[in-house]
């Protein structure tokens, strides 16, 4: 049983080593009016000096036959691709080809209706290569010719393209510092803001308010406590911390409660004794 298996494996190895080649590769360029402007055979070994140039209306025809190199018999490989590669931009396009059972393949590039597989082109040339893959042959990769196409529209940017670059450094812009207005305006409005005090003094001077008991012993502690409160708050603005103010304020508050109670009780008694006068 073993020798047949070995022979089969050997056959497979031999078959896979069999090489592929092209027979009669030929390119034809046909202009829009039907005249053939270029018609020549291709050589896989020698690179042509003149790249194939197409205008917007030209048609390129490429035909060849895939053969086994040793036997010269046309075969149909499993995969056949044309690759258009722009070495400047790195863009490439892959065009699968249909191959007949006898190995014949044709490709037609009509520039009036370019296929979607064509990469975006610039003024540089595309190199056209042929890739042939088969299960039972060693693969074939052959450079065919250079192709110069009219430049296409610029490549559309990939939406995430910017993620692959260093972003520009963020420059923070701050609002300019606010400035005080000119001194003249400041002075004018200081006067305007202080003017109500004069109005207050004027109005109060015209109202004869009797304050007969303001300096009596029962009331003056309360008013002075209130005054000390205000002084404490001004002091808070100038110097003190919040905790100190709350401490002193609570002490003052206790004092104010007692003095205020005493003062207001005395006033209330006075008011009740003379009920005609209000407050």
């Amino acid at each position: 049983m073993i020798p047949p298996v070995l022979s089969l494996l050997a056959c497979a190895a031999l078959a896979s080593a069999a090489k592929l080649s092209l027979s009669g590769p030929r390119i034809t360029v046909i202009s829009s009016d039907g005249s053939t402007t270029r018609n020549e055979p291709l050589s896989l070994a020698l690179k042509s000096d003149y790249p194939v140039q197409l205008s917007n209306t030209d048609t390129l025809k490429l035909s060849f036959t895939i053969i086994e190199k040793d036997e010269g018999k046309g075969i149909r490989p499993h995969q056949t691709f044309l690759r258009f590669f722009d070495s400047d931009t790195g863009e490439e396009g892959i065009q699968p080809l249909r191959v007949s059972p006898s190995g014949k393949a044709k490709f037609e590039l009509n520039m009036a209706r370019p296929p979607a597989s064509l990469p975006p082109t610039s003024s540089s040339s595309l190199s056209v290569e042929l890739f042939v893959g088969s299960f039972v042959h060693s693969p074939l990769q052959a450079y065919l010719f250079d192709l110069v196409l009219p430049p296409s529209y610029p490549t559309p940017k990939h939406p995430e393209e910017s993620h692959y670059h260093v972003k520009p450094e963020i420059q923070h812009i701050f609002r300019p510092d606010p400035t005080s207005p000119p001194k003249f305006i400041s002075a004018v409005f200081t006067g305007v803001v202080l003017a109500p005090w004069a109005v207050l003094a004027l109005l109060w001077s015209q109202i004869s308010t009797p304050l007969p008991h303001l300096f009596s012993s029962s009331i003056i502690p309360f008013t002075s406590t209130l005054a000390i409160f205000e002084v404490l708050l001004v002091w808070y603005w100038v110097d003190l911390k919040l905790g100190q103010v709350l401490l002193y304020g609570s002490v003052l508050g206790v004092v104010a409660v007692f003095t205020g109670h005493r003062a207001l009780v005395s006033i209330g008694q006075r008011r009740l004794q003379t009920p005609k006068k209000s407050t």
């Binding site: 109500p196 005090w197 207050l200 109005l203 004869s208 308010t209 407050t279």
Partner: peptide, 14 residues
């Protein structure tokens, strides 16, 4: 009353 006028003057000032 004068006392209310006194308060009113303060209100005008404010």
């Amino acid at each position: 009353p004068d006392r209310l006028k006194f308060i009113d003057a303060f209100l005008v000032f404010l």
